[in-house]
């Protein structure tokens, strides 16, 4: 049953990793705007014209 000591340690560690992940998400601003991304994802990609050469190079990158 001594293996339980190890497993308990593991479970606490895994839980701490998730807590850390939550804090990382909070700090990097993922919870700041919870509405706009849901609209943004619905916009269609534009059909590229042959004449239209460079406008998409500057597409939003972040």
């Amino acid at each position: 049953m001594n293996i339980l000591y190890f497993l308990i340690g593991c479970s606490v560690l895994v839980a701490l990793v998730f807590l850390g992940a939550f804090f990382w998400a909070l700090k990097s601003g993922q919870h700041d705007d919870i509405y706009t991304p849901s609209v943004r994802i619905l916009f269609d990609d534009e059909v590229k014209n042959v004449t239209d050469e460079k406008s998409d190079n500057n597409h939003i990158s972040d």
């Binding site: 700041d32 509405y35 706009t36 609209v39 943004r40 460079k54 597409h59 939003i60």
Partner: peptide
């Protein structure tokens, strides 16, 4: 509305020097 989001996030089409724009709709 969503059109506003679309338009304001595509400002680079009007002037490429405005290379990124992000909207926070609720604010």
């Amino acid at each position: 509305c969503s059109s506003c989001i679309w338009l304001l996030e595509h400002l680079y089409k009007i002037n490429p020097a405005i290379f990124s724009s992000r909207i926070d709709f609720l604010k």
